[in-house]
Write a protein that binds this DNA or RNA. Structure first.
Lengths: 212, 212
DNA sequence: TAGATTGTTAATCGATTAACAATC
DNA sequence: TAGATTGTTAATCGATTAACAATC
């Protein structure tokens, strides 16, 4: 298999490039784009962009750059599963609901097909087109809806237990908003988004920069 | 000035350690803790923890480890401004509202004191104890409330303009949820949280791991 | 062709890891 | 003391950057 281990950061940047191209393509509509133009939009170096794009196997043309349409297609072939992937969200609090709204229709190949919570008053409803279930129903729903990706927006103390359920049901990718380090077996990829940590970091550097 | 340039990642981990200690301290209540115990909770190595803690200038004791209470205090002295810092949020959409709720009362030294939007129907209200203003009022409110940190939850096309306003008003730290690379002058720290990118990354690796 | 770009290799940089000395 | 831990230095690792050859 080619490109057996591509850097986590490279995948992230490819996702960013594609979105910028889609946005740019819709408005400006230029047919070709240079690495330095993508770099300017994404806030990275042109060499970085070229190196990342080599990973997807799409070659640019010297002095003409990259064809926008083909490039978007190639990144899509590389990043997406053609038939799409279904996502389950666990934890229907304020953050969970915001994320349901945020991702609704944003990426055609990634759909949040079901949401789960342990509180009885939150289940058997529909939020932004997404059906809500009890956590106990996850195995059945995951199998029926073919859920391969999970988003955890539960409180910290419930996250580990939820993660274990997800893994047991065949989920290999987890986006974790709970502020705990999940203990997961090998073969499961977890991406953590810790908003409290991010805000404290920003506050620290703001304070430090203000002193100078 | 000692420790002139501490790694961005170190600051983030220190924030994580503190929260874990506060959580742990409240429930378990042990007076001392070893580096490997913190490491286990945070998902890093013990050597990493020791190196990070040296940055805050708090020394542990061989064979006894770190005093939990003193350690939390030392990290606080290092990370926080004693009188606290005020935060402004711009963009009162679903994500903005979720973040207002999420940070409400979570960190005593960091308070979101005002929210801003351009839509008339969203201003002059109070959401979770936070007053909402028109974006044009930002300079006046920021000066009055001493806002030094900004959270951007606007759509992508408004983010750069908003960021420039923040910087003009003396904000030195920005937490950016909009999926664009903000062009900022030196002396301003920006932390990006790109949820779409994170989900696409997770989906990619889930797909890749499922193939193996 | 000349010029500007792309693809590729070597050098640099920074953070992490591992090994060791110091300490209670 | 012996043992287990902490603080410190050197080695490793990986990603990024810079330099260069290839190409339209």
């Amino acid at each position: 298999m080619q490109n057996a281990n591509v850097s986590d950061k490279t995948i992230g940047r490819l996702s960013t490039y594609r979105r910028l191209l889609l946005y740019r393509f819709g408005t400006a509509g230029q047919s070709h784009i240079y690495s330095y133009q993508i770099a300017g939009l994404a806030g990275v170096t042109a060499a970085q962009v070229r190196r990342d794009l080599m990973v997807v196997g799409y070659s640019g043309s010297p002095n003409k750059g990259y064809r926008v349409e083909d490039l978007v297609g190639s990144i899509g072939e590389f990043l997406d599963r053609p038939e799409g992937q279904n996502v389950g969200l666990i934890g229907i609090g304020n953050l969970g609901r915001a994320i349901l709204t945020y991702f609704s229709g944003r990426r055609p190949k990634l759909t949040i097909v079901a949401a789960f919570d342990s509180a009885p008053d939150k289940i058997n409803r529909t939020i932004h087109g997404c059906r809500c279930y009890a956590v106990e129903e996850f195995p059945a729903v995951a199998a029926r809806e073919n859920i391969t990706v999970g988003i955890i927006t539960t409180p910290a103390d419930a996250a580990q237990r939820v993660a274990e359920t997800l893994v047991e049901c065949g989920v290999r990718g987890i986006l974790n908003f709970a502020p705990v380090a999940l203990k997961l077996p090998p073969g499961v990829h977890c991406e953590d988004i810790d908003m409290t940590m991010a805000l404290e970091k920003v506050a620290y550097f703001a304070r430090k920069l203000a002193r100078d």
